[in-house]
Amino acid sequence: MNLISKELLQAKNEPLNYFNKNSLIIIGIVVLGLFLYPFISPSKFALHLLMMIFMHAVMSQSWNVLAGFSGQISLGHAIFFGIGAYASGYFYTKFQITPWFGIIIGIAISAFIALLIGVPMLRLKGHYFAIATLLIGISFQVIFQRWPEVGASAGLYVPINRDSPWLSMQFHKNKVAYYYITLVFFIITFFLVWLLNRSKLGYRLKAIRDQSEAASSLGIHVSKYKVIAFIISAMIMAPMGSIYAQYVLIIDPNNTFSADISILVLLISVMGGVGNIWGPIIGSSILIPISEFSRIYFGGTGRSIDLIIYGILIILICIFRPSGIVSLIPRSFREREKVK
């Protein structure tokens, strides 16, 4: 037996995926801490802030799955946020269907719309794709602004129900329930994306992202997988819309189908690091507090101060750290420790 086969044997004994023990422990502690946090310091603002961070992390993770895994840049991702919000809100308002089931309806409709949009869009490359998603996103807003069945511009007011908080998914006495719901979705989403990242599907999608011609020379049906990525991405976004709707209880085309949301999820991902599953968490943890704090300190009058900071930060990131804040963290901590 020669040296080379020894190395091969050793290579085959390596685990398929490396788990960095330290980071696993850190993640465990952080998750535990987040679950216990409301008992330690149930400040309303802190819970709201954390909830917004989780929610936006999931929303930009949805965007990140599409861009980071399959290389398609969407500028209209608010579509699926809006569909989620309207699905749960509409079916609860009109038919008293519990928002829990509404979430599922929202996911299903989003998946279907993603399929309808995704297939014709396959022919579009680069800027044509991005601009098309931008226009489709705004079209949804225009249509919902004028659709009487869903309240047109005024939107839907989710009827208040104080008797059965769990069934109506409305928690008026103590908003901490929203915190936990969002936290659970946040953890599930990240776990699923983490699994996706190391699954066969993940390998294929990343291949398409990096080099779609090479991917198709390796037996990957590029169009099919691009649509699959679009659908998965849409399905991640929709529940956040539903939860948001139940949280604010007012759904209108401007707070759901807004181009600002589409842009925000992109900015968060780029800030954190596109194509990295931690990127959205990092980006969200940096950008969301900026807007929440500026809302407190400057109130309604200075509403755009957060946007000034956002814009400048993003430009700086694009110029100096195009791979996002995550690239500042040493590689060994992020993934495989065994890089020779």
Binding site: Y203, A207, Q211, E213, A214, A215, L218, G219
Partner: peptide
């Protein structure tokens, strides 16, 4: 046309 941002092993696994 390598998958530039992936390791050699990951490149070959795709195949």
């Amino acid at each position: 046309k390598p998958f530039a941002d992936q390791t050699l092993l990951e490149n070959v696994i795709v195949g």
